[in-house]
Design a protein around this nucleic acid. Structure first.
Lengths: 203, 203
DNA sequence: TTGTTTATGTATCGATCACTATAAAAGTCA
DNA sequence: TGACTTTTATAGTGATCGATACATAAACAA
């Protein structure tokens, strides 16, 4: 679309690609563990280019968060929405959380938001607001399927869809937390079925 | 006990007090956000004294974690264990989590382990093991009361005590996560009662 | 006293951090 | 062509980081 010629020396990199490369570095090494040197190396651009395009380190970090939130390729949620059967969907969600959180030693682990960004909420200004809206968005997406099932008659009319959406999201955070501390996928999957039933139960 | 005279110039500070002061700094500012300057100022000792006594920054950090784990004055667990009625105990636990996580802007917030240490698990070597054993210990303490209630006949014989202990612990982590992102205590308390019932429910 | 041991205070160390001044390079305009 | 605009690469900036060298101070042992 915007292929109109502009005056001045053209960019030698694609902004979106550089942003994704930066996100992967933050994802793998954390915010504080990532230096500008790491970033310029991974993005394939020089310091001044980075600063003129993305502002400073914090600005770049926030932009990577926005990128992730916009695309939202968060695997567990995608798996959840793809499965028609609600019980299977809940199970798939939690299973995907566990597998994604426990694999990929060293590299990007789990969900960018839950595994990396969440740890910088109290530290980097601007993250908290993004985190809050991201959590709310996920709550809503998870609740949406419950609401559909209520309308279809597969769940009771007074089923607390939003509450259970939030619950599912919090269970995710619990799994991520435990996996960070070294829990194995096997150990995490142990009480998964109990929780699946619990999320869908309604007296 | 160990008040035997030792040769050499005596310490001008009490190790436990200095350690507690250091913990409060880490608690309030996070690991990366805390500089050695912050630490020496808060502990009232000089750099060389700090290094000769506690090793390096990481060593000091790990020692503060051990201190907290040994004392374990984690308010929610204490409140939980103090309340005889199991339903009230579960409610008190979660309520305490919410209130402690949302108050004290700027200063130490929530549980040291859940609010500060948890964010450094993937970053500081030695934290993961401590975090894992701390989580397991809390799981056990929470499950213990459920087991007692089972024996007393207040809960079904096949009630999954350990699973529900873990669940309660994970719900805590979810609340802490949300409070970090800016949730108000009021919003967090909204679906608390639903969860209290859920933790104790058994088909 | 003198020697030994340990802790303290001062004053810094080199390394690394996020960040930028400067000027050449690479494009569009006239 | 040559003025103009923007991005590039080089080479650093001062600040702050975690961690120490050194000499002094304060205890005990002889």
């Amino acid at each position: 679309m915007n292929d109109t010629k502009k005056i001045g020396r053209p960019r030698s990199f694609v902004e979106a690609e550089a942003l994704e490369a930066a996100m992967n570095v933050f994802w793998a090494k954390g915010y504080d563990g990532t230096s500008m040197k790491d970033l310029t190396a991974a993005m394939g651009i020089s310091g001044p280019s980075l600063y003129s395009t993305f502002g400073d380190k914090r600005g770049l970090y926030l932009k990577t968060i926005d990128l992730y939130a916009d695309v939202d390729g968060c695997a567990p949620v995608v798996a959840y929405e793809a499965e028609p059967d609600i019980t299977k969907a809940v199970r798939d969600f939690l299973t995907t959380v566990v597998t994604y959180s426990t694999q990929q030693e060293g590299g990007p682990k789990g969900c960018f938001l839950a595994s990396c960004v969440a740890t910088t909420v109290g530290e980097v200004e601007g993250v908290a607001e993004r985190m809050e809206s991201a959590i709310k968005a996920t709550d809503q997406r998870l609740a949406l399927k419950f609401e559909r099932e209520v309308k279809l008659g597969n769940l009771p009319q007074d089923f607390p869809a939003l509450h259970r959406g939030r619950l599912l999201n919090d269970l995710r955070q619990g799994y991520v937390h435990r996996s960070r501390a070294g829990w194995s996928a096997e150990a995490l999957l142990e009480d998964l079925e109990d929780r699946v039933q619990m999320v869908l139960s309604w007296a």
